[in-house]
Every structure is written in C-alpha cells, then in structure tokens.
Simulated scan of single mutants.
Amino acid sequence: MASDRGAPQARSVNRPPPEAKSLLEIEGLRVTFGQTAAVRGASFSVARGETHCVVGESGCGKSVTALAVMDLLVQGAQRSADRLQFGGEDLLTLPAKRMAALRGDRMAMIFQEPMTSLNPAYTIGSQMAEVFTRHRGGGRAAALERAAGLLGRVGITAPGMRLGQFPHQLSGGLRQRVMIAMALMCDPELLIADEPTTALDVTVQAQILRLLAELQRDLGLAILLITHDLGIVARIADKVSVMYAGEVVESGATAPIFAAPSHPYTRGLLRCVPVPGKVKRDELLGSIPGVVPRIPPGFVGCGFRDRCEHAVAGCAAPVPRQNAGGGHEYLCRLAPGWAA
C-alpha cells in the first residue's frame, strides 16, 4: 500500500515485550449525554510501559473517553461498556470510595488546560501536598518534601520557592510541569495526559514531550496520551487509536498506520500535516470538508460518510471491521489494500 503524501514518519520506539499484560482494557465503551452519543463502542488497551495515543479532531470523543475511565463524567452522563478494567479491577462496578482511592494514586490524569486546572486560591505546595496526604498519609512536611523533589524532577528551578507561589505567578509551561509533577505524587501505574501541550509554544511542547518520555523510561509508566497532533503521535506513540464521532475507526501499532493508513479519515488527517521536504512551498495542504457531526443514540452506519469522498449508499448499513494484518484494524467497507 502506498503511504500518504506528506505523512509524518513514525519513529522507532522502545515497545513493551509481547507478553506484557494490559493494564487498562476498554471494550465497547459507550457514553451518552441525553440525545448525543459521545462515545460509541470504543475499544483499545494500554499495556504496562506503553504509550498509547488517541488522536482525532475536537469533538470526536477523546477527552470523554478519558473522563469515562476516571469516572469523572458530568452528572447526567450515561456510561456503559462490555469491559472496562484497570489492573484487573472492574471500573464499572467499583464502589465510589474505591474509585476515589484509585484516582490520583494508581491512575492519574493531566488535564487539558494548565492555565485553569490549578485552583487559583491555593499555593502550588498545598495542592500537591493534598494528593500525597490523601492517598499515602503522613505529615505535611513529608508531602512538601516529595512535592519539591518532583518539581525539580520535571525541570522547575528553585522548587522550594515555587511551593509557596500561586498558579497565577507561573507561566503556562511551568503550570503544565506542575500538573505533571502533581500527577506523579503517588507513583501511578497509568498516566492519562489530555492534550498536555495545548496552548504551549513549540519549544515548551518539545520539552514537555521529552519530559514525559524520560519519566516513562525511568518510572515504567503506562501513558494514555490524547492529542490532535499527528506529529506528536509519530514521535512518541507505541500504538495509536484514531477516533471519529465517538468510534475508534482505526487502531494498531504506530508505524504501520502512518505508513499505510486504511481508513479514509486517517488518510485525510495525514494529508493535512505539513512535512518539511515533502510538501512543496506554496503547495496547498489537504483538508477534510465539513465538521464532526453530533451522533444520536442508535445511529447506524459510518459516521464519516457525509464527509468521505468514497461514500456510497451502502455506508448507511452496519460497518464491518477490517483486518489489515499485524493487529492493524479499521472500521470501513473498503477492503484491505484499497488505497494501494
């Protein structure tokens, strides 16, 4: 199969051993908000020590999927799944008290917007210490000592002084580093990072990504990274799940998906990415017409059909899941090899 023009090349990364057991298992996850099906049967898993990226446009259900895993959905949202397990524990039936004990301890999340995710009324030290004392006990002094150590670990200078500062006294890049340090306070097994480089300049983005890679290597973290940036995916992901309109439309190891994308949506996303040396000066980038639709419960057929140049009447029927080999799967009527 021919690779897409201008597609970024996925680099070789250190992958977990084949026998690595999945830490997080998601099968058939569904989330509805009234008459909107935000997540529709999403399935993927994250192994220990693995970086799994979930990619797609805004409104595709990426953040909702992460919030469903953490059981942080807004009141009124309906969550169900065929399987939703973390470390062998069923997150669907877990008592609220046990779920609260997992959050921030064995599983932690870096939220999307560092400028507003920290409480402006409390110092950095108070907010970080609360995580540690809640889950691990001990005194405030021990918690602050660990907080200072982690601030230094994520590259913040004068960490002891920073503990006494308020969020508004820090730049966006420093706040993002604080969020990462806070998520690591209890040595979690799974770190969910929801677009951790949003609103940061390119230099700080590179620093944050390098930091996450270093922390994963040193601490053995499993990382579920949510992003719309395919360049980030190509740099750090072991596996990738492409989401559209609440569904995982393509999934597998990163390199095969970037080399031979099989879903029209994935191919469209890759055509939108400028790649130095491959896209000529003044050449128009690709684009996907239209917007992500709001899908109602009970919707049948391909959610991408109204934007797809290959759509036919049969796309309104149930969509088969195709196997492109090597664990590379996609949700489309087009048979493997159609884009060769």
Rank of each mutant, 00 (worst) to 15 (best):
L230G: 10
Q112S: 09
W338E: 03
A340Q: 10
A68V: 01
C315E: 06
V248Y: 02
A253R: 06
Q75G: 08
F86S: 08
T51F: 01
T198Q: 15
G326T: 04
D238N: 13
H168C: 14
D201L: 13
Q205A: 12
Q216A: 00
F258C: 12
G155Y: 07
I232T: 14
L72P: 13
E27F: 00
R162N: 04
R40I: 05
E19I: 00
E57Q: 14
Q205C: 12
G326P: 06
H135P: 05
H328I: 05
E214D: 08
L184R: 04
G49F: 01
W338C: 05
P318Y: 08
M109Y: 04
A213Y: 00
F132W: 14
F299Y: 14
A324R: 07
I295C: 02
L92C: 07
A77E: 03
A96I: 14
F258L: 12
M179Y: 05
G87A: 06
I236A: 04
V242N: 03
E250P: 08
L163T: 11
V312R: 02
P159T: 08
S241G: 15
G325V: 04
I208K: 10
A100Y: 01
L211H: 06
V319A: 05
N323K: 03
Q216L: 00
A7L: 12
Q35D: 14
L200G: 13
F132N: 03
S3K: 14
H135T: 04
R162Y: 03
M1H: 11
R271D: 15
F166G: 10
A42R: 00
R307H: 11
Q216F: 01
T65C: 08
Q207E: 15
E247W: 02
E189F: 00
F299P: 00
V275P: 11
M70F: 10
A37K: 00
M179V: 02
P320W: 04
L174R: 10
L269H: 12
A255K: 13
T197L: 10
P264L: 06
T227G: 07
M128E: 11
R271P: 12
V249I: 13
M109R: 02
T123W: 05
V273M: 13
E25R: 08
L150Q: 02
Q169G: 15
V69Y: 01
T65E: 08
L24C: 07
A121C: 15
C332H: 06
P297W: 11
I223A: 01
L224E: 04
R294L: 14
T51L: 01
G41V: 03
G34L: 03
R15Q: 05
E250Y: 08
Y122M: 15
D71I: 02
G286S: 13
R11I: 10
E283P: 14
R103G: 12
L224C: 04
P188F: 02
G160F: 04
T32S: 09
A66P: 09
P95Y: 11
P196G: 06
S241D: 01
A311Q: 03
L150V: 01
R83H: 02
L285M: 08
A47R: 10
H328E: 03
E145L: 02
